[in-house]
Design a protein around this nucleic acid. Structure first.
Lengths: 201, 201
DNA sequence: AAAAAAACATTCTTATCAGTATGTTTTTGT
DNA sequence: ACAAAAACATACTGATAAGAATGTTTTTTT
């Protein structure tokens, strides 16, 4: 029984290391020798726990990338205690970005990076990344529909269109920010998205 | 003198081939042997005209990617004959997307793909890609300010923020579309961006 | 027409990759 | 305590990469 725990710990060690490298250098630029280098493990260990590079790619997306988006962007919008909708949207699409570290600004969004780098190449990756976006959009639609009922969101708002628009702008600006050295672009996005969200009421 | 033309033609042949491969498989996944394969040329020819992979990357960005964005997204917004602003924005951010081929939908935007894949890794790439976005944003700011004067755009609109917001949403949705098999996501974006643009008036 | 240079082709080098085969050590069930 | 299996390590294979070196052909200059 102790062995199962150790195995999971080793896998997580490798997965976490792989995630960091995928995030910093991209999936294609990251090699398996590089992934294990930071862990103190050997190639034999890696291939004992994962059967290919594609396999660890899937694990990273499922266990780390998906989890990150879920915790940061989906959970805050689930709104179990029925809070006002507009401030919730501001939390996720404005405050979230304001709280990023310089590194997170420089490197962009892990999910969006993978979508753009390998989103079209590998079908298993596509499906998982699509699931992440679908889930995000769904919780936003629910929130906005909820807002309509409560009279906080205009009745003529197309909720699924609004959701995709907000997600697109968010991911788009996080990508574009990568080629800039300062926060000018993010600040401009913040002004515009604030106006957009408020105009939903 | 004939030789100079031939040289340029060969370079363009290689550059065009490289662009297609970068677009389809990404910069890092594309090898120089692959690039020359489609041209009938040899590796010696390649390294006679370009001194490294980074070098052809720069040429592709400068001569093809920049030109594409300029012709498709910047020129239509330059508005020399003083046309109404809102329809012009619709042309670029709505009609443009509606006219894409299936392949263009699947593969996303070449500029945005490169921004996301190598935007942070190589400084010379960063600078050039940044220049493309800067130029795009600038022409939009001019157009919107022009629209304010003509009374077609609300006076309290932040033009640089609006420009980045539109660009971000456009590039964002083109990225996200890559993990989908149908146009649902694009259609939703189109509804939302139409409302957004019209609300600028 | 001969010399020089540009445009290519061929071959080679060195490095690194993903993945495999075959070990050794540690843990676990009996 | 011992056999089996899991968790690792080491060494290897074959493919492919970027780029350099060195060749040959074509074009240009004189």
């Amino acid at each position: 029984m102790d062995q199962k725990i150790k195995s999971k710990e080793t896998q997580n060690l490798i997965i976490n290391n792989a995630f960091e490298l995928f995030y910093k250098h991209g999936y294609n630029k990251t090699s398996i020798p590089e992934i294990i280098k930071g862990t103190g493990l050997s190639k034999g260990a890696f291939y004992h726990h994962f059967n290919s590079k594609k396999n660890i790619g899937e694990k990273v997306i499922d266990l780390t990338v998906r989890k990150r988006v879920y915790e940061r962007m989906v959970v805050p919008l689930k709104n179990p205690d029925d809070a006002p909708v507009i401030p919730l949207l501001c939390d996720v699409f404005i405050k979230r970005i304001e709280g990023y570290s310089d590194l997170e600004k420089d490197l962009g969004c892990p999910a969006n990076n993978l979508i753009n780098e390998i989103g079209y190449s590998e079908n298993s990756f596509r499906k998982m990344l699509r699931g992440i976006i679908d889930n995000w959009q769904l919780v936003m639609i629910n929130l906005l529909e909820q807002g309509k009922i409560k009279g906080e969101i205009r009745k003529n708002i197309d909720t699924s269109a609004t959701a995709i628009f907000l997600i697109s702008a968010f991911e788009g600006v996080r990508g574009i920010r990568k080629v800039y050295d300062d926060d000018k672009i993010l600040d401009e996005y913040l002004i515009a998205v604030k106006n957009y969200i408020e105009q939903l009421a």
